[in-house]
Design a binder for these strands. Structure first.
Lengths: 145, 145
DNA sequence: TAAATAAAAGATAAAAAAGTCTTTTATTCC
DNA sequence: GGAATAAAAGACTTTTTTATCTTTTATTTA
């Protein structure tokens, strides 16, 4: 198990993929995305429907349809994608899963986790979706396998 | 979803609970542990069987039996518990779930995640199980709810 | 040695996450 | 308007995780 759910991993990878195409000025269909990020097509379809409802990606049906992003969405921080899929328990929940863990009634790892959660949160807040494009374009990073 | 699996959360909490009792010189039964950390009894039994096989806790059957830890185990870092249950993908896996992500063929979040994974790993390596006892004894931290 | 105790082991069951397949709806273009 | 295209929606299936219940084995103590 990683930090994110599998669903969230696919979500992030697909958003990067769509953003990449959007900056080249084209829409992209689900088959191509699924191939490009190595994910199951129909499962990804569900995820993108979700991201679409939450305004992170846009879509259009019919010939020449597909997924794309508007300029505002490209500027959004990565945390928006993660929160849309996995919620915010990763940043705000107790590391030991205790519902009532708090500053006043902390679990033994409370302070240790506070730092880690903040690290994760800050990383995801300070990076916009668009920031990852350049390296994708240059081929410095990849989304497949 | 948190950073650890539910199973791992119960594992860590039960290990803290047992360590606490061990330092007071007593063994503790599964019913009491389950109550003390607010976990399902029979599910926890499975987890402790696992931790027992892996040498993290010890157990004895029969009257006055129960779980306890030897001195070596108390000194072990917390990461041993996490690895025993959740494996090491949290520290060494790709944040976007890509099997072949590496320094040479990095995913877009590779460098960002490296830092976070190192933070988590270092935190879990530098803390020994015993270290959390004092605050438990003093009532500064709690394991229930 | 029999009764009591407590963990180990085994067998299911329930819930959640991940994945697949089919039908419907919207759009384009001829 | 009809055919083709592509996403949306709905219905399932499979796998994994979490949880429960029962039986067995080991140990103690009276």
């Amino acid at each position: 198990m990683g930090i994110f759910s599998k669903t969230c991993e696919y979500a992030i990878r697909s958003v990067f993929f769509i953003a990449h195409r959007t900056e080249r000025g084209t829409k992209v269909g689900i088959k191509e995305i699924a191939l490009g990020i190595n994910s199951p097509e129909h499962f990804l379809a569900k995820i993108l429907q979700d991201l679409s409802k939450k305004g992170i990606v846009k879509s259009s049906k019919g010939p020449n349809g597909g997924f794309y992003m508007d300029d505002g969405a490209l500027k959004r921080p990565l945390v928006d994608v993660v929160e849309a899929i996995d919620g915010n328990s990763l940043f705000f929940g107790c590391g030991l899963g205790m519902a009532f863990c708090s500053e006043l009634k902390p679990c033994p790892l409370h302070n240790e986790f506070k730092i880690i959660r903040e690290n994760i949160y800050n990383m995801l807040v300070k990076t916009s979706i668009r920031e990852f494009n350049e390296d994708l374009v240059l081929g410095n990073t990849n989304l497949k396998k």
